[in-house]
Amino acid sequence: MDSLKEDLKKQIIAQLNLEDVQVEDIDDEALLFDADGLGLDSIDALELIVLLEKYYSIQVTKPEEGKEAFRSINSMAEYIRKRKAESVL
């Protein structure tokens, strides 16, 4: 199991108060903003930006940048790895 994705799911559940959702309920490929996925909305998207800064020290300065990255758990994990790699000398 990919621990980054596992952590992300836990952090999302906590940060967005998804009380009735368990880590196992979130599929890596499910569309987070789709009603059939997690059904997140525009405020959740902004809260995910806060999450990235809080846990991964990644700053997103334009919300549009987040849009693509926040499609699914897979895309978020990929985005975090990419941004982290960029910050290494």
């Binding site: 967005l16 108060n17 405020i43 959740d44 902004l46 809260e47 806060v50 800064e53 809080k54």
Partner: peptide, 8 residues
């Protein structure tokens, strides 16, 4: 305290 204004 958390140094991150929460939009939610």
């Amino acid at each position: 305290e958390q140094k991150a204004p929460s939009p939610a």
